[in-house]
Design a binder for these strands. Structure first.
Lengths: 151, 151
DNA sequence: GTTGACGTTTACGTTAACGTCAAGTTCAAT
DNA sequence: ATTGAACTTGACGTTAACGTAAACGTCAAC
């Protein structure tokens, strides 16, 4: 094994790589999401920290709070290993999966509506008479949501 | 047509139906996301407002900010209708779709990892020697992320 | 006629997730 | 020996998305 896998990173290196600031990494550490090694005062990040960070940031993109992400990461730290505790972990894990699937459904529904709308707009034409926009196929006008009297 | 479609709602009725508070609806109004009719001081919500609210809340579940949701709703309000403006709308619409698809990919990746992990945990057994948890199939131990010296 | 449920506006409070100084250290380079 | 770059720890500032409380109007019910 060539020692290429034992790479370490300074806080700025890791931050830059993931497009965040050092402050963000320190914040995640404050929240107990990562705990890098120390050399004196300075933080030294290893591969495992890098993987964790990637997980955290993906969690953020998915819309989770740092708390929720922390809870999910805790699942991975089985640690002691009481038998019942293990069952709880599995249960929580499945809950998260269901939540994620629900969210995916929401996203799909949103995509579908945007898609429909996008095509509708792309196929509009001017109405000779009214000078307003109508559908190229049916000639139907658009239902606009009217702001009621901002007065 | 029986007049059942012209139903209106008080602020609390609508709020209750969607599991939010009246304050939330007023806030969305402040942000220009909905603008219900008024009877004197009081707000009267119609079907169109209800649909909008559903959209907003789904947007929230998907992880969008109220600003972003407002921008997406603006897409639907084609309004004036300059030709170039229409093209811009279509373009922005497609951008949003791509962002949502990327987010869906993230969700799928997260689901996959949780799924794998969940099955892994479900198939653990105790190691006679070490007294620690190992995989039922390979006997391999778990890689735990070690918090480094909280001292 | 007053209580209670609902509505209103105004305005300050709260939490999350950092941003943004300030003030100090450490270490290599000039 | 001093500059500069990168690190550190406070600690206060900021934005978003409401919560919460104050002070008031309205109308049906008792």
């Amino acid at each position: 094994m060539s020692g290429v896998m034992n790479e370490t990173y300074s806080i700025k290196e890791l931050a830059d790589e993931f497009g965040v600031t050092p402050r963000t990494l320190r914040h995640y550490e404050d929240q107990g999401l990562i705990s890098p090694e120390r050399q004196g005062q300075n933080r030294i990040y290893h591969g495992a920290d890098r993987v964790r960070l990637a997980w955290i940031l993906r969690g953020k993109r998915v819309g989770f709070s740092l708390q929720e992400i922390g809870a999910m990461l805790d699942l991975y730290d089985v640690g002691d290993g009481r038998e019942t505790q293990r069952a709880v972990t599995v249960e929580r894990c499945r809950e998260r999966i269901h939540a994620l699937e629900a969210q995916r459904d929401d996203i799909n529904a949103t995509i579908d509506e945007l898609q429909e709308f996008c095509e509708l707009i792309a196929n509009l034409k001017r109405d000779k008479k009214s000078g307003t926009w109508v559908r190229r196929d049916t000639g139907e006008p658009l239902g606009t949501y009217a702001p009621r009297k901002t007065a």
